[in-house]
Design a protein around this nucleic acid. Structure first.
Lengths: 243, 243
DNA sequence: GCTATATTGTTTTCATGTGCACAAAAAACT
DNA sequence: AGTTTTTTGTGCACATGAAAACAATATAGC
């Protein structure tokens, strides 16, 4: 690998002028990659979705301009976003859809499988357990847990519901990455502590409460009420504007 | 300009001391309110949650500094955010919790009731229909709709599931504000068109597809896959950083 | 009542994010 | 092979957002 980098450097200066200097510079000197903002990351899944559709339609290549028309964003933003991760495109040609799709997938980590458990088998927990799209993307539901003893042993999509007591042992034995919290807010904080203590890597939190976790544990909150209130605000705002 | 300042200064000091200057200024000159960014709006529900908790604990007043400690944001941001909507606070005192809670609630429109229907009575639709917290906030589930004829007539929390054919008439007769889409992406676009044609004010979209709606119809997307992919990205990023 | 203290509202500064414009480079055409 | 066209990558300027600093003003203590 180091050898190749040196070769690149040679080409860069003396032969292939213009090849992305930053990348070579960073790789050659092993400088830490500059952190990519969450604003950019937040847009990647949407790119992935559109690229997937294009791929399914058999489109081989696409320019930033055409993609910008389809997605209703500026072509400039598309180019800048993609360029954060290296030169995916080719001047005068555009971007190869399949390649770009794969690369963005890799960046998002969906080329790897993630094992998850769902804590709280209410309607929402069941909805997520049954949502096949996650499985397609490599997110595998491995365990279900619920406080309610009546649910223990019942099957949801073939997966048995386990009592909360088995949480720690199950995580340890099954190498779980992600814990999904679909429980009322009262239980969320203590359960999140237990998950963290088991060494879980990430928590996908649907409880309407802020979780405090140590650095290194990733948390993604889905606060449905917040989303609904934003909608409510915008309804009122629009009505006021119209007078 | 100088003249007006004198006038409102007069009112301020001698009559309605403390009444928000900006509002008077804007009203007097009929200046259009400056648009408030979605970044600010997005933070309001979180403020509301914390203020609600403080209120329940019997806390009467709070300073931006103390709130900033609790919420892990800067005091400056809190003051700026609140000040967008007028002077909620008082120098040397802080903010009255109850008053602030009420005002933010009004801004978000949860002092009014919103009538909604849920289209798609799968697990997710049922989860939302059963979620009592929305009702407490004035979001009333008035109708459920599903394509599947086997579901027609069945009750979810006492509400009968209706066939899709009744969508238009039901919305018209029941004065529905918000349509919730919990259906697969294939159906989302046509259904959203039907909702828009009925004059619905807003769509809360859980289908993994972008909806195109005319100006004036509010859309709030909840793309669960996107959220999960962001989590996945951050897991990988952290592991890379650690080496 | 006067002074010291607390705390907001506002101005200023700094950082981040986005759009535009152009140079570089590949492809397409002749 | 040379020229034109296409289209990326990138520097730059502008807009937006957030933090810091400060001025205004209310409270609290004496």
């Amino acid at each position: 690998m180091g050898f190749w980098i040196v070769v690149f450097k040679f080409f860069d200066i003396y032969l292939t002028k213009g090849y992305n200097r930053n990348i070579i510079w960073q790789e050659a000197l092993n400088v830490e990659e500059k952190e990519i903002s969450q604003a950019v990351i937040g847009r990647l899944p949407r790119y992935l979705r559109y690229l997937g559709e294009l791929k399914d339609e058999g489109v081989e290549r696409i320019s930033s301009q055409e993609l910008s028309r389809i997605m209703n964003v500026t072509a400039s933003q598309i180019r800048q976003d993609f360029n954060h991760f290296g030169g995916f495109g080719q001047q005068g040609y555009g971007y190869n859809v399949e390649y770009l799709y794969t690369e963005i997938g890799k960046i998002l980590g969906i080329d790897q499988t993630h094992k998850l458990i769902i804590v709280g088998v209410g309607h929402l927990g069941q909805a997520l357990a049954n949502y096949m799209n996650f499985e397609r993307r490599g997110f595998l539901v491995r365990g279900l847990f619920d406080q309610n003893p009546e649910l223990t042993g019942t099957l949801v999509r073939g997966i048995p519901v386990r009592p909360m007591e088995e949480l720690e042992s199950f995580i340890g034995e099954n190498d779980i990455d992600i814990g999904v919290l679909t429980i009322p807010k009262e239980g969320a904080v203590p359960v999140s502590k237990r998950l963290v203590d088991c060494g879980i890597k990430a928590i996908w939190n649907f409880a309407h409460v802020d979780l405090e976790v140590p650095d290194g544990v990733q948390v993604e909150n889905v606060h449905l009420s917040d989303s609904l209130m934003k909608l409510s605000y915008n309804i009122t705002r629009f009505e006021k504007e119209q007078g």
